[in-house]
Simulated scan of single mutants.
Amino acid sequence: MDRHTVCALTLSFLALPALAQSAAPASAPAAPAVAPPGQAAPDAAVTAPAAAAEEAPPVTVVVEGRRPGPGVWKVTKGDHVLYVFGTYSPLPQKMEWDSSRIERLVAHSQEVLMPPSANAHVGFFRGLTLLPNLIGIKKNPDGATLHDVLPADVYARWSTLKAKYIGEDGGIERERPMFASEALMRAGWKKNGLVGGGIVLGKIEEIAKKNKVKLSRSGYEMDLEDPRKLIKDFKAAQVDDVACFTKTLDSLDADIDTMRARANAWANGNIAEIRKVNYREREDACDNAILNSAVIKNNADFRQTPERLREAWLKTAEKSLADNASTFAILQIRDIIDPKGYLADLQAKGYTVESPK
């Protein structure tokens, strides 16, 4: 186990991936039917009026086979260039990403900037001593269950979707809503032909190592003064993560077909469709559940994490642009296409930014 693994475990509660990246539903989804005790829950398609069923749009088929993914954004100043590639999750499970174009760009670059991340510096041996403290970090405080901490209507929706995508799993009922919702989301993806986008990031790392191109971090490190106390405080703290949990249910309950369409848009490199996506609603709800919790807000190491990550990336990107003839960078696609995102900051500083067609 290396230092990065220990740090990732230590900060597992902070580094939850923003999984759904879903747009807001056009209207609030109706609560699913809940069966009386001892009876199976009725299928939504059966209980819906016939007219509504006839008007329902066809299910989007998730693409398969070799797909190019999106093109790269090009940031230039003088004769130096920064190629920026946008990652997305979820992606089509049976897609084979055609990385040939990216391999050429990486091979001709002097440096690859990994996505920005905040890493906790605790030291290897000190990190090993922290591992026992991490046991139970995903659980609700005081042995509470999801039934205890969720509003009744939200728990009813959870029960229906859990039965559909996860099945019997008593242990998950004791997890904090944010962790339970992550497990539900991944199970929902799998049953709908989708998978997390980490495979793309891994492939780019492999390409860089194969071509002996320098891999660089683009975030910052935190020196935690008392990580053991931080973990203890988090395990005992209540976290207002119901909004994160509810947005996850919305995504699976009302937005799964749109999720497939977004995955297809990334796979096919359809920039026009990619730009239509609202990436932030669930992400913001889940991020805020952590960053606004008392244990984090009262810890100086974690204050203004998003702002510090952005500043660190911009500083690293500008240095790479100055030092290298060609640099390749990876960002979440939401941070690229956002009119107030990372590339907008570079453009405001005088860099030329070109979008793929």
Rank of each mutant, 00 (worst) to 15 (best):
V84R: 05
V84T: 10
F85T: 12
G86M: 09
T87P: 09
Y88I: 13
Y88D: 05
S89Y: 03
K94R: 04
E96V: 10
D98Q: 06
D98R: 10
I102H: 15
E103S: 11
E103M: 05
L105N: 09
H108V: 01
E111R: 15
V112C: 09
L113M: 07
L113Y: 13
L113K: 12
M114T: 03
P115I: 14
P116A: 00
P116D: 10
S117W: 12
S117H: 02
A118K: 05
F125Q: 00
L130E: 14
L130A: 00
N133S: 00
L134A: 12
I135A: 11
G136Y: 06
G136N: 02
I137P: 02
K138M: 02
K138S: 12
K138W: 03
K139L: 01
N140H: 09
D142S: 11
A144T: 09
L146M: 09
L150T: 00
L150V: 10
A152D: 15
D153L: 12
Y155A: 08
A156P: 07
R157K: 15
W158A: 14
S159L: 04
K162R: 14
K164H: 09
K164D: 13
Y165P: 10
E168M: 13
D169G: 04
D169R: 07
G170T: 00
I172W: 00
I172F: 03
I172T: 02
I172E: 10
I172N: 01
E173T: 05
R174M: 06
E175T: 04
M178L: 02
M178R: 04
F179E: 11
A180W: 06
S181H: 05
A187D: 11
A187Y: 01
G193S: 10
L194R: 00
V195Q: 14
